[in-house]
Structure formats: structure tokens, C-alpha cells
Design a protein around this nucleic acid. Structure first.
Length: 944
DNA sequence: CGGATCACG
DNA sequence: GACGTACGTGATCCGA
């Protein structure tokens, strides 16, 4: 997986002593001294801000000393005996440190009779044993014993005051020995602050020299016998016992009991409420302003992340600045290098490895990432510091002279270590595409960042009428960098004269391709900077960023469809529609294009004279399903025929014909493409082909689902969240009766019918179901009336009853609209924002449309967040359960489809249900259970 | 290329 | 006083 867990352990007690001495003696409005607390608060702020950085925390806890007593006092009664009392204006700040920690909603570890250092050591080792990286936020020299690498997991330290990282090299520089021997050095030199004796007269220099020379403490002490007569020799012999005692005292206890599970230290966003309260209480106004603004000026990078801590009003929108970022020079395409030799490529790779951050873009021969061939790769390490590596340029004519370029396999061999290096973040714009292309060349790419996804997490819904709402690269570059990129059309042309990228001359190709990498690098700086300031970090880092490789793999797997089955259906549908068309023409009395709503409207309402033709704003009669059904009810045979004709042509053109064409020639499977930024609410969308709208509601349509099949020996498994949006509505709106019904596993629509009408009949249940859905979508009396076929008055009465029985719903709607009007966006339980720039429109229709969408977005979006979390965890969960052959193939909003060996059904079902049912945890604990329904079969149709 | 229609959750 | 009435998508067809 791209992201490694990284635990930050903050040595809180040590920090405040240092902060106290370094910061001015501030007091809060009540006169309480808070200088050290302020320093501590800003430190946590900065750490939280680092959540999105390459080496930043994924998990974090603060460790404090609860008491000064520990096992060391038992073996040495003078331990820390001469430590002076803390200054009196520091004493009242100790409890405030806990308050500050709580305000950030961070776990705080304090155990009686255990020193913070030992607790940190124990947690560090625990995390390391699980393969996590660890950063100890401290500069305490005792803790330097822990620095180093073990089984691929690293422990380092961070001195936040000096803003310096401490790695093995730094420890060696300080002590002259590697970390594991620091204890020996400390034992010799002693520590006056902790009153550790050491050897009197031996300081750091002598101690490190002795240990470096002899290897360890015992050997150093033994060596005294052979020394020339000296003061040092005498002291080593005389105080040997002191040194040995000191060795025990400086040894960290690495097996303390761990009161909090490290998994529970996950940084999952900082709720703004308690933090704002804390900042306010102690008069930390500058921090409070940043929190309230939810945005900062670009030259003030030290702002806070909290995921849900933004209050940015629509007017405070920081997007749309066309100012180039100050430190970035204008794009200069002439600065780019075309890399044509392996030596030059190696030079770029080693520079990229050193910079830890590289923007990457692939150029290909087509748009379909599962079919396109790789034509070249561009890299960028900074503004105007970019190159293009052509790999398959040259005319389509195989005899045409090809430009000099590195052999594909040589280039990939040079790039693979860089692209797979944990230490280097690869930035893409829509990285899923590049991942898919490169995967077909056996190139693994991890970890990645994605500017398209970051843009979506910051600005979903922010565009107006298609202006500035997208997340395409050219659009973002224009919007954020004030620059216009070369377009693909300019380079490759359009229409019939269009050439493929491989035919573009290298100088031109370099300008285009390297520019894409260059601007991706620049966009990244801009967008990634905004994430913590605008509360986008949690949803990006915890949901959408880790999802990218998961979805890429799903696309790569594809799903098998039975071509012969589809071809058979196409033929049936063709025969039938031909027959229907003749009948329709006969009934109409003339031939016309049945597929033309305009001509059909004229036939129905003018030629045949049916009543009730309604013209829309386009001036043409509406002939949609509801109209045709009405006519059918009035006895119009032609309406029935048209309905049937429409159904069959729809199924044929959109499904049975199109799906056959979508079968990939190489894999023999159908590979959809999911968009992570397509739906404003955070849902995925599916294109080319859309596999999220395969028919299921009618028997004839379901035949198409039966054409989606498993390979021989395998089955398909479909796992659905049952009624997830209603469950979330019950939780979010705190609707007692609905929560109770879900807890009891009741039929929710029946329960609604009972509450509303006092009895459950087929009729009242159906009405209740309609009303339940209406609620999710933002209800209006006319809309409901139309659906139920009743008068608006009656619909209003039902709405009133609903609100009366379920008062939480009305409150939810009110509160949601108020916050959206105030802040400009709605939010899911996981902190995903959707913007509603039209919520205050003077145009009533437009405004009401926004209101309905705003009521729905938190529910639909939370559901999307939950299934995404399940997807992210699914692969590891299946692997851990020894089920590597179970493959997740499709997502359909509340459903996941897997392909698996028949023999794995039982075991896989358990894992899948467990992951899906618990996907909200631990970030969100729902008041309702998440019900999962699982089915299996040889085809998708039979798995339901 | 926009509108109308209809497939899905 | 008129507006135009359920949320979120994508594919296909027609016709300007």
C-alpha cells in the first residue's frame, strides 16, 4: 500500500519545560500564565498540519509524566533527587497541557509510576514491530537510544524548536557512537539533571571516545586495568559501580503496559468545536482567527489542518486566485530537457530520489488507459525543472526513421526503483490513469499524490454553470496559476487530421509533455498547501488518496462478460424492435422516426389528436415514460408499443451492443473507468462503459446482468449495504423510531407506515416508502403529490405528519440549510465538503434546487465515504484472512462485486461483511447498524 | 452540442 | 406575479 503508518509520539512534559524557558511570559484573559501552553499549542498545530506531508503523522499521541516516581527510584533513591521544583508560573500550566491535548482530540498517555520516556520507548517499539515508522517529538538525549531502523521500520526524532530531524547520523555526530551504544556513553558521563552519577570527571567527550574505542560499557570499564596510570584510570576503577548503576538507570524500559491501542491513535481530523473553545478561553486569538477563517494567505504556511475545523464562508473562498505563487517563475517551455540517453535519465532519477517529490505524467497513444500504449514519460522536480523521456516516438510507418530515444525496457528499468520508492512521492494529475498504463508494463507506482483528487476534495461543487467547476488540469492551471498550457489539440490537431502523440516531433512533444509535469508540480504546491488550511486533509488522506490505487486495481481486473449471450440478446431485441416499429407506423398511419421525441410528439398529439400534450421550454411535446403510461392507461395502444420499443432499443444500443464493443482485446474482459471526481457528493461515477447502471429493475433488463459472469471455477459475489442512506438519515437526524427500527432489524418502510398511518397495508407501506425517499432528496409538497398521485394539500399533510412523528428530520433539514447558507458548503460525517454557490440565489427555482441538493449531499456523501473506506480496507482484510484470490471488481454506490473461487465463498463472505459493516469506525460511531446483504452466483444477475 | 430520454443507486 | 418542482450519475439518439 502507498501509505505507511507513521506514529508521532510527543514528549509533552519535556516540551513544556523547554517552551517555558524559550517563550515570553504570556498570560490569558484570566491572568493565568500560558506562555508554555501557547508554545505547546502551536507545536500541536504544526504537527497536525504535517498530516498531509510525506513524512507526517498518520497516528499521534501525547505522552506526559504523571508523577516523578518510577522503578528507577526503587533501585536508586537519589534518582532525580536534586531536581528543583518547577517555576511557580509553570505549575498552573501543567493541567492546561492536558486541556490543550484534549482540545485537539488527541490521545494523551499518562500512567502512574511510569516515566514518559519509558512509555514512549514502549510505544515506539510496539509500532515498529508492526512495521510502522515512528517519530519521537522530543530532543531528549535518552530517547536517542531508540533512533534507527529495524525490519524496515524507522524510528527518528523531531526537535520542533529547531525544526530538525534526528536520524542515526545526527545521533552519531552527537555521541560519536550509534544509537544502540548511546546508553553506554550516558552511563559513563552521567546526568546532573536526573542526578545519574556516571563516572565522576568523565564528560561526553571522554565517554564517547571510550565507548567508540572499546565497544561497550563493560569493555570500556575493563580496559581501565590495562591503562597507563592516570586520573581517568583511577576513576574508572573507583566508580565502576556507579557506572553500572547508571547503565541500568539510563536504559529505557521498552515493555511497559500500553494503556491505549496504537490503532486508536489514528489522526482522523480535528473537530473544530473544542479547539475553538480552548483557543478562545486562553486568548489565543491569532490561532483562533486562522481556525475561523479556515484559510490563510499563501505566504503563511504554518496553519492548522483540522479536517472539520473550517468555517470558511463562501466569501472567504481562497480559490480563484490568478496570482502566480510568489516564488514560482513563469512557465518557460524552452527550459525543458528531452531525455534521450540513459545517462541523462539516470541523472534525472537520482535528482528525483534526492528531492523526495516528483511530478510524473505519461503520454500514451490513446485515451483508454487499459488499451493505450506508452509513448513517453515526463518528470518535474520544480518550476521549469522538467523533462520529457520519449519512448515510442516515430511515424506509424515502420520504415520511417525514428528519433533517438532510450529503449523502452532500459528506461523502465531505470525508472522502476524511483516510481516504487517509499521515500519519493509521485505527483500525478489523475494518477489512476497513469497507474493503469504503467501497471501493464509491470511498473509499480507508490506512493502517489493526485492534484485532481486534491482539487475535488477542496472545491467540489464550487463551479457555476460549468464555469470553473471542473478539476481538469488545464482548467486548474488557468484558475490557480494564471497560465495557459499547450493543449493536446494544438499539438496533435483535431478530427481526421489528428495525429497520435507518438507522431509529434520531439521538440514539440517535450514542450507539451514536460509542461504537464511542470504545472502538475506547481499545482501540487498550491493545492496541497490549501488542504490543511481548508479542512480537506482528513478526507483526502484518509479516504480519497488511499482509494486511488484500489480503484486502479479494480479497473485493471475488469469483469468478464459473455459475448455470445449479449449477441443473442441483441439479435432478439433487433427482431422485436423491427416488428414494433412496423406496428407503430401502422397505428400512426405513416412512417416516422420513432426514436425522435419531436416527431413522436407530433404524431401523438397532432396527427392522432391525443389530449394532454404538454410542451416544454423547447417548444416540443413531452413524450417521456410518465406521459406514455398515462396515454396507455387511456387506451392508446401506440403508447404501449412505443414504451416497449424504447425499452428494447435502449437495452440494445446502451447495453447489449455497447458492452460487446467494450470487451478489451487483450484481457477479454470489460474494464470500466471510475471517476473519483465526477459526482459532487463524493460518489464514484463509471464511464466507458458505465457499469453502474446495468439494468436490474425489469426482468428483460436483468438478462443483461446475467451476461456478467465469473471465470470457470469462480463465482461472483455481490455485497450490498441495505438501506444505507435511510440508516444514515436516521443517525444524522437523530430519529428515534427509525433508529430503533433499524436496531431491531425491522422493515423500515413498514415501520414508517405504522408511525404515519397507524397500520401497515401494501398501500400504506408503498406510500411510506415514497415518503422516505422524498425525505432523502429534499421534499416539496408538489413533488410528493406528483409521485403519490394525490393533491398537494394531502401531500403537505403527510409531510406534516412525518415531521411530527420524526421531529429530528425537520431539525436536520433546518440545521443543514442554515450551515450551508452560512458557510457555503455541506459536510459529511467524515468531513467531505460539497459547495453550493447557488444556495443564496435570488432565482427561486435555482435556490430551491440547491437546497434540495444540500439536504441530500451529507447523506449521499457519507454513504459514499463509508463504502470508500470499506474498499480501502478490503484488500488487506482479505489478504490477512488468507483469501488472496478474492478480487474486488466493481462498485455500484452501495454494492461491491467480487470474483472468487467457489471454495472461498464462506470465508470471503465473513470478511466482506465485517469490513463493510464496520467501515465507518473508528472515525464515526453510528447509532444504527449497517446491514449487509450478500449473494453469490455464476453471474451478476444470479448473485442478487 | 444541447435536449430528451432512460438505465442505475 | 411567475417560477416549476425529488437527490446523484452516464449513454444514446435526434436534430440544429
Amino acid at each position: 500500500m502507498a501509505d505507511k503508518n507513521h506514529l508521532y509520539l510527543v514528549d509533552g512534559s519535556a516540551y513544556i519545560f523547554r517552551a517555558y524557558h524559550r517563550l515570553p511570559p504570556l498570560t490569558d484573559p484570566e491572568g493565568t500564565p500560558v506562555g508554555a501552553v501557547y508554545g505547546y499549542t502551536t507545536m500541536l498545530w504544526k504537527l497536525a498540519e504535517d498530516l498531509d506531508k510525506a513524512d507526517g503523522p498518520t497516528h499521534l499521541a501525547v505522552v506526559l509524566d504523571k508523577s516523578s516516581h518510577s522503578f528507577r527510584n526503587e533501585i536508586y533513591d537519589q534518582y532525580k533527587a536534586n531536581r528543583p521544583d518547577p517555576p511557580e508560573d509553570l505549575v498552573p500550566q501543567f493541567p492546561l497541557i492536558r486541556h490543550a491535548t484534549r482540545a485537539f482530540s488527541l490521545p494523551c498517555i499518562e500512567e502512574p509510576d511510569v516515566e514518559a520516556d519509558d512509555m514512549i520507548a514502549s510505544y515506539a517499539r510496539e509500532a515498529q514491530s508492526k512495521g510502522w515508522d515512528v517519530t519521537i517529538v522530543s530532543s531528549d538525549k535518552d530517547l536517542m537510544q531508540l533512533v534507527g531502523e529495524r525490519d524496515g521500520a524507522r524510528i527518528d526524532m523531531l526537535d520542533t524548536m529547531k525544526n530538525a530531524r534526528i536520524y542515526i547520523e545526527e545521533v552519531e555526530e552527537k555521541f560519536g557512537v550509534p544509537p544502540e551504544k548511546v546508553g553506554d556513553v550516558l552511563a559513563l558521563m552521567g546526568d546532573s539533571v536526573d542526578n545519574i552519577p556516571g563516572i565522576f570527571g568523565v564528560g561526553p567527550k571522554t565517554a564517547s571516545k571510550l565507548i567508540a574505542e572499546h565497544g561497550d560499557l563493560t569493555a570500556a570499564l575493563d580496559s581501565a586495568e590495562d591503562m597507563k596510570k592516570s586520573k581517568l584510570k583511577e576513576r574508572l576503577i573507583e566508580h565502576r559501580a556507579d557506572a553500572e548503576l547508571s547503565r541500568v538507570l539510563v536504559t529505557l524500559k521498552e515493555d511497559c503496559g500500553l494503556p491505549v491501542d496504537i490503532d486508536d491513535m489514528k489522526l482522523d481530523g480535528v473537530p473544530p468545536g473544542p479547539l475553538a473553545q480552548f483557543l478562545e478561553k486562553h486568548g489565543f486569538t491569532s490561532l483562533l482567527r486562522r481556525l475561523d477563517a479556515g484559510s490563510g494567505s499563501p505566504d503563511r504556511p504554518n496553519n492548522l489542518n483540522p479536517a472539520k475545523a473550517e468555517n470558511a464562508g463562501a466569501e472567504a473562498s481562497p480559490q480563484g486566485s490568478r496570482q502566480p505563487l510568489p516564488e514560482m517563475p513563469a512557465v518557460d517551455r524552452s527550459s525543458y530537457e528531452c531525455v534521450q540517453t540513459i545517462d541523462r535519465l539516470k541523472a534525472w532519477v537520482s535528482r528525483a530520489e534526492a528531492s523526495m517529490l516528483v511530478a510524473v505524467d505519461t503520454e500514451t497513444s490513446a485515451l483508454d488507459s487499459m488499451a493505450a500504449d506508452l509513448v513517453g514519460i515526463s518528470l518535474a522536480l520544480g518550476p521549469n525543472d522538467a523533462c520529457y523521456i520519449p519512448l515510442a516516438h516515430g511515424g506509424t510507418d515502420m520504415f520511417a526513421e525514428k528519433p533517438d530515444q532510450i529503449a523502452l525496457e532500459d528506461a523502465l528499468a531505470a525508472l522502476r526503483p524511483l516510481l516504487a520508492s517509499d521515500a519519493v512521492t509521485k505527483i500525478f494529475h489523475n494518477g489512476k490513469y497513469d497507474l493503469n498504463v504503467l501497471a501493464r508494463y509491470d511498473v509499480e507506482v507508490t506512493p502517489i499524490d493526485d492534484t485532481m483528487v486534491i482539487s475535488f476534495d477542496l472545491d467540489a461543487g464550487r463551479g457555476l454553470d460549468g464555469i470553473g467547476g471542473g478539476h481538469g488540469m488545464d482548467e486548474l492551471v488557468d484558475r490557480h496559476l494564471g497560465h495557459t498550457c499547450l493543449t493536446f489539440k494544438e499539438v496533435c490537431g483535431t478530427g481526421k487530421k489528428a495525429i497520435s502523440f507518438g507522431e509529434v516531433p520531439l521538440d514539440r512533444a517535450t514542450e507539451y509533455a514536460a509542461e504537464d509535469a511542470d504545472v502538475t508540480w506547481r499545482l501540487y504546491q498550491h493545492l496541497k498547501h490549501r488542504l490543511p488550511l481548508e479542512g480537506g486533509t482528513a478526507i483526502y488522506e484518509r479516504v480519497d488518496r488511499p482509494l486511488v490505487p484500489v480503484v486502479a486495481r479494480m479497473e485493471q481486473r475488469g469483469i468478464k462478460v459473455d459475448r455470445a449471450n449479449l449477441a443473442g440478446l441483441s439479435k432478439e431485441f433487433a427482431t422485436e424492435t423491427g416488428r414494433l416499429e412496423k406496428e407503430i407506423h401502422a397505428l400512426a398511419g405513416r412512417e416516422f422516426t420513432v426514436g425522435s421525441p419531436k416527431q413522436l410528439g407530433d404524431v401523438l398529439f397532432d396527427t392522432l389528436g391525443y389530449k394532454g400534450g404538454k410542451k416544454g421550454k423547447s417548444g416540443q411535446y413531452s413524450t417521456d415514460q410518465s406521459i406514455l403510461e398515462r396515454l396507455s392507461g387511456e387506451g392508446a395502444e401506440i403508447a404501449d408499443k412505443v414504451l416497449e420499443w424504447r425499452q428494447l432499443t435502449k437495452l440494445k444500443s446502451t447495453y447489449t451492443d455497447a458492452l460487446q464493443e467494450a470487451i478489451n482485446a487483450k484481457t477479454g474482459r470489460v474494464h470500466t473507468s471510475y471517476s473519483l471526481v465526477g459526482a459532487q457528493t463524493g460518489r464514484l461515477s463509471s464511464t466507458d462503459p458505465n457499469l453502474q447502471n446495468i439494468p436490474i429493475r425489469t426482468a428483460i433488463g436483468r438478462q443483461i446482468r446475467d451476461a456478467f459472469v465469473a471465470e470457470e471455477g469462480n463465482v461472483l459475489l455481490a455485497a450490498d449495504y441495505s438501506q444505507i442512506e435511510l440508516r444514515l438519515a436516521a443517525h444524522m437526524a437523530d430519529v428515534g423510531p427509525l433508529k430503533e427500527a433499524f436496531a431491531n432489524g425491522e422493515d423500515i418502510h413498514a415501520r414508517t407506515a405504522t408511525e404515519m398511518f397507524g397500520e401497515v397495508t401494501r398501500d400504506t407501506r408503498a406510500q411510506a416508502k415514497t415518503i422516505n425517499f422524498a425525505i432523502l432528496y429534499g421534499i416539496s409538497r408538489w413533488g410528493l403529490a406528483g409521485r403519490l398521485g394525490v393533491e398537494a394539500d394531502e401531500a403537505q399533510a403527510m409531510i406534516d405528519t412525518y415531521f411530527k412523528r420524526f421531529p429530528g428530520i425537520q431539525r436536520y433539514i433546518q440545521e443543514t440549510l442554515e450551515t450551508v447558507r452560512e458557510r457555503g458548503y455541506s459536510e459529511t460525517l467524515f468531513g467531505r465538503k460539497t459547495w453550493f454557490p447557488r444556495i443564496g440565489s435570488k432565482n427561486q427555482a435555482e435556490r430551491q434546487g440547491s437546497e434540495r441538493a444540500a439536504i441530500n449531499a451529507p447523506i449521499q456523501g457519507t454513504s459514499a465515504d463509508i463504502i470508500k473506506r470499506a474498499m480501502i480496507r478490503m484488500e488487506a482484510a482479505l489478504a490477512d484472512a488468507g483469501l488472496p484470490k478474492v478480487q474486488m471488481l466493481l462498485q455500484v454506490h452501495d454494492e461491491l462485486v467480487f470474483e472468487l473461487p467457489e471454495s472461498d465463498i464462506d470465508a470471503a463472505s465473513k470478511v466482506i461483511e465485517n469490513v463493510m459493516a464496520n467501515a465507518a469506525r473508528p472515525a464515526v460511531i453510528l447509532d444504527v447498524p449497517l446491514g449487509i446483504e450478500i449473494g453469490t452466483g455464476k453471474s451478476w444477475g444470479s448473485a442478487h
